[in-house]
Nucleic acid binder design. Structure first.
Length: 211
DNA sequence: AAGTAACG
DNA sequence: TGGA
């Protein structure tokens, strides 16, 4: 553990997994609770929706975004959009989320998108690459909240050996450098593993530089 | 194929 | 459960 003088909060050192930097328990319980409350107001302004894949099947994960850009998927493909499907601009990225980015991202650029994924019971996300951004030198930072999620990491192309790791509430993961384009996904969520989500479920935030 | 089925 |  190292001290963070700015907030006088002790933060964990990272563990490497396939080039991803995993910070187990980066956020304390009170920070997690506060963040979930903050997200409640974001979701009020930009309601969760179930994206349609370009192939006509809806994703099991519900999502929304904050920031200048949000990530969307529909019959026309995967892309970033400056507006929610309801036509409104996305809400601003809340400061506590920007603070996490500043602490771990290692870049001077600010995130332009905070994608908010909500995994209800049974929701999964298949193996994919984050490659809709313009600059792969910019990392993606992920924050886990709520129920545990089984995260799988593969390779730069499909196939080959993979590794799995349980992500827990408060964990932060930095996907950058050589690992930026690794395939990854969520196999399953363990229901009822977090008291923070009374109705259950897992929230994952991913911050990205889009342009 | 950011999905799902089948199979080892 | 993992990967095709």
């Amino acid at each position: 553990m190292t001290e963070n003088p700015k907030h006088a909060i002790s933060r964990p050192d990272p563990q490497e997994i396939r080039g991803f930097r995993h910070y187990p328990g980066w956020l304390g319980l009170e920070e997690q609770k506060a963040l979930i409350e903050t997200l409640r107001s974001v979701v009020t302004q930009a309601p969760l929706f179930s994206p349609m894949t370009p192939y006509g099947k809806p994703m099991s994960v519900r999502m929304t975004s904050a920031g200048r850009f949000g990530w969307i998927s529909d019959r026309r493909g995967y892309r970033y959009s400056e507006t929610h499907p309801d036509g409104q601009p996305w809400p601003a990225i809340p400061q506590p989320i920007l603070d996490i980015w500043e602490a771990v991202s290692g870049t001077s650029r600010a995130p332009e998108c905070c994608l908010i994924n909500f995994y209800g019971e049974g929701a999964k996300m298949g193996m994919h690459q984050d490659r809709d951004e313009q600059d792969f030198d910019q990392p993606v930072v992920s924050v886990s909240l709520g129920d545990d999620g089984l995260f799988r990491i593969g390779n730069r192309t499909r196939g080959g050996k993979t590794e799995s790791i349980w992500l827990r509430s408060g964990d932060v993961m930095v996907m950058g450098g050589e690992a930026r384009l690794l395939y990854h996904g969520i196999d399953r969520v363990k229901p009822g593993t977090s008291p923070l989500m009374p109705k259950g479920g897992r929230i994952n935030l991913t911050m990205r530089v889009v342009t």
